[in-house]
C-alpha cells in the first residue's frame, strides 16, 4: 500500500476561471481572428467584396427610394385644384373668371387650359389623334388649375368648397390622383427592394458560411487536437464566430464605400436636374445612423453565417 500516503486527487472542484481571464481571451480572439484575415489579404478582400456588393445593392436602392420619396413629399404638399368649367361658358368668360380668382387671397396662381388646348394635349399624349378627328365638336371642358397659397388642409378644403359654389364651375377637385399613383408604385418598388434585400442577405449568409466552412476544414487537425485536450464546442466555435464577424463588418464597410462613391458620382447630374425643377432638393446619402446600421447588419449577418456553418461542421469533426 505504498500509495496510501498520497492525498486523494480525484473529485477536485474546478475553480471557475477568473473574469478578466475571459475578457483577455475574448480580446485575444478578436485580434487574432483579425490577424488571420489580414494575413491572407487577397482572398479575404475578395470574400469581403462579394459581401460588400451584396449589401450595397439593397442599400443603394433603398437610398434611391428615400430620395424619390423626399422629392414627391415636396410636391405632395402643393395640392392643386382643378376647376372644370361648364360647357356653355365661353373662353372670354373663362379668362374673366381666372382674373377674378387670381385676386382671391387664398390663391397663388391660376392657369387656364382652354378646351382646344386640352384636346391638343390629349391628342399628343393619348395617341388617339385619328379617332378624335371623328368627333363633331370638342367634348372637353375648359379647366382652371388653381394653386392654393398654403398647404393647410382646412384652408384648401374651404377654398375648394367655395369654388364649388361658383356658377360657372361644373366640378372642382383636388388634383392628387397622379401622386397617389406614384405613391402606390413606390410601395411596390419598396416591397421589391425588401425582397431583394432578403435574398441578398441570404446570399451573404451563404458566402460567409462557405468561407467559414473552408476555414474549419483547413484547421481540421487543429480542431481535433483541441477536442483531444478537452476543448468544448463553444471554445472551438468562438474564433470562427469572430472571423465571421470581421468578414461581415468589412463587407459592410465595402458596401458603404460602394454606395457613397456611387452617390458622389451621381451628385453632379442630379443637382443639375433638380435645379431645373426644385431648387431646395438635397441628395440624401448615408448619414451616421444609416451607416452604422449598414455596418451592424453586415457584422450580424457575418456572425449568423459563421454560427450556422460552425454548428454543422464542428459536429462532423471528431478526433481520430
Amino acid at each position: 500500500m505504498n500509495h496510501s500516503t498520497h492525498p486523494p486527487i480525484s473529485h477536485r472542484k474546478a475553480k471557475p476561471p477568473p473574469r478578466n481571464a475571459w475578457l483577455m481571451h475574448y480580446l485575444y480572439l478578436l485580434f487574432s481572428s483579425l490577424g488571420l484575415i489580414v494575413r491572407t489579404p487577397l482572398p479575404s478582400l475578395m470574400t469581403a467584396a462579394v459581401i460588400g456588393i451584396a449589401l450595397a445593392l439593397p442599400t443603394g436602392l433603398y437610398l434611391l427610394l428615400e430620395n424619390v420619396q423626399q422629392v414627391s413629399s415636396g410636391w405632395g404638399g402643393a395640392a392643386q385644384i382643378s376647376l372644370f368649367i361648364k360647357q356653355e361658358i365661353d373662353n372670354k368668360q373663362v379668362h374673366a373668371l381666372a382674373d377674378q380668382l387670381y385676386q382671391h387671397p387664398d390663391i397663388s396662381s391660376v392657369q387656364v387650359i382652354t378646351p382646344t388646348e386640352a384636346l391638343e394635349e390629349y391628342r399628343t399624349l393619348s395617341g388617339f389623334g385619328e379617332s378624335l378627328d371623328a368627333l363633331e365638336h370638342n367634348p372637353l371642358p375648359a379647366v382652371l388649375v388653381i394653386q392654393p397659397i398654403t398647404n393647410e388642409e382646412i384652408t384648401t378644403q374651404n377654398l375648394l368648397n367655395s369654388l364649388k359654389q361658383l356658377r360657372e364651375v361644373e366640378v372642382a377637385q383636388f388634383d392628387m390622383l397622379w401622386l397617389k399613383r406614384l405613391l402606390a408604385m413606390m410601395e411596390i418598388v419598396r416591397r421589391g427592394v425588401l425582397i431583394l434585400a432578403i435574398l441578398l442577405a441570404l446570399a451573404v449568409l451563404l458566402v460567409i458560411g462557405n468561407t467559414i466552412r473552408l476555414a474549419i476544414y483547413n484547421r481540421r487537425d487543429e480542431i481535433e487536437i483541441y477536442k483531444l485536450v478537452g476543448a468544448t464546442d463553444a471554445f472551438i466555435r468562438r474564433p470562427f464566430l469572430f472571423t465571421g464577424f470581421w468578414y461581415g463588418l468589412f463587407g459592410g464597410f465595402i458596401a458603404w464605400l460602394f454606395v457613397n462613391t456611387s452617390f458622389w458620382f451621381l451628385q453632379g447630374p442630379v443637382k443639375q436636374l433638380t435645379t431645373l425643377y426644385y431648387s431646395q432638393f438635397e441628395l440624401l446619402t448615408l448619414n451616421v445612423l444609416s451607416s452604422s446600421m449598414l455596418l451592424l447588419s453586415g457584422a450580424s449577418l457575418g456572425l449568423a453565417g459563421a454560427w450556422l456553418a460552425v454548428g454543422r461542421h464542428l459536429r462532423e469533426i471528431q478526433p481520430r
Binding site: 474546478a14 476561471p17 477568473p18 478578466n20 481571464a21 475571459w22 483577455m24 481571451h25 487536437i225 485536450v229
Partner: peptide, 23 residues
C-alpha cells in the same frame, strides 16, 4: 499530435488556455 504552427510553449499551454486560466 502537436500544433506545428505554434511554439512549444503554446502547445503545452493549450489545456490551460482552454480551462481559462490567468495568463
Amino acid at each position: 499530435r502537436l500544433l506545428f504552427d505554434r511554439t512549444v510553449f503554446d502547445n503545452v499551454a493549450l489545456p490551460l488556455i482552454i480551462a481559462g486560466l490567468r495568463h
